[in-house]
Design a protein around this nucleic acid. Structure first.
Lengths: 212, 212
DNA sequence: GTCTATAAGCCGATAGAC
DNA sequence: GTCTATCGGCTTATAGAC
């Protein structure tokens, strides 16, 4: 029987309904269980496909894992990051940005991806670098450009300052959510954001004579 | 035969030469390979002991892993952290502290511990919390106390500021070393430290009229 | 293409000799 | 206490029926 146009496209780009089904199921298991602790049997069960079907779409376990992490990193995260617009009054924008960033990071799916990428950074260094390029480098670049386009903020090193801003938030989420500090350390996110904005903007909006 | 005094002490505290040998070998394998990817056979080979000897000293794989992480976290790291004295002129002290902290963190053994704790934070949440208490909370407390004892620095929230200082450095190491950003992102550590100290101390030592 | 069944090997944990 | 040898189960990956 002749193939439909969609089927031909699917084959050309390597996609298909089954392949998508496998990716969805495997993503769920890999992200929650990690690489070594995920069996192909479990992936097959989660995707509601037989094991052989998986092996007909992906070379092996490593290939499947790589495909999933690339997919999640590039498509899902990159998309949300790209839609962020950095405009507006600095104190308001930075606060909104910090809150949005923290809420995104605290999402279980982001936490899982972060955990897995860190955990498998030795076995899959190319995935770690992909994460660095698409998530970290991109985010830092956006914020750095914003700082650079606002010379009135008097920021000596926009790139380093962007790292400090985002890095503080990342490590906050690691300590609070990934390492369960939430249950033993009563630091609230608003205090961190307040202190961070005060540091970066200094007296901006309150005093304008910071540099002298 | 009667037991020597040392042997009685060993039994009382659960230590022995063989036990120590096992811990050393297991530490090496667990920290470099992760939990799931470490087999008891490999631990036995690394410790140059038979498997049964391991099982006579530890209940199971989880027990051995827990013992190792607790040991490394509490003894090694805590010891070095405890010996840190925070005294001196703020600009100099903060720079020295940042450099010492970054050098420590970049040490392969610290990176491995961090990686493993993050990777197994779901399976072993109590180890993650131990790490939080002994490493993160302790370090933050020390720096926070220092800020608090120097009111001339004009730091509104010492605890949050301590988090920002240490968190920026931690996430820098994660991006550079754990996620191999070093090879693709040319940000140097001195730039980060400069920016960080400038933010926190503001015009301290250059201008003293920061607050208006 | 997708299934069931199974190969081939490694895993954690234990039994038994000494 | 420590060794060698081994068990049952689970792993990745493949063969063969349909």
């Amino acid at each position: 029987m002749a193939k439909s146009k969609q089927e031909l496209i699917d084959i050309a780009v390597g996609s298909s309904e089954k392949r998508e089904q496998i990716l969805q199921g495997a993503m769920q298991v890999f992200l929650s269980q990690g690489y070594a602790n995920t069996s192909m049997d479990r992936v097959a069960a989660a995707a509601r496909v037989s094991k052989q079907t998986i092996y007909s779409h992906f070379q092996d376990k490593e290939g499947l894992f790589t495909a999933i992490i690339e997919r999640v990193t590039i498509h899902r995260i990159q998309r949300e990051l790209g839609s962020t617009e950095l405009r507006g009054d600095p104190p308001i924008l930075l606060r909104q940005l910090a809150e949005a960033f923290l809420n995104k990071l605290a999402n279980p799916e982001y936490l899982s991806l972060f955990r897995v990428v860190i955990a498998e950074s030795v076995r899959f260094p190319e995935l770690a670098q992909l994460y660095t390029r698409t998530v970290i480098q991109k985010g830092r670049g956006l914020l750095s450009d914003y700082f650079q386009s606002h010379p009135e903020l008097n920021i000596a090193d926009p790139e380093a300052t962007a790292h400090i801003f985002l890095g503080s938030l990342v490590s906050f989420v690691i300590a609070q959510e990934v390492l369960y500090g939430k249950q033993i350390m009563p630091i609230e996110q608003e205090r961190l954001i307040d202190a961070l904005i005060l540091l970066i903007l200094g007296g901006y909006g309150v005093h304008t004579s910071r540099s002298g």
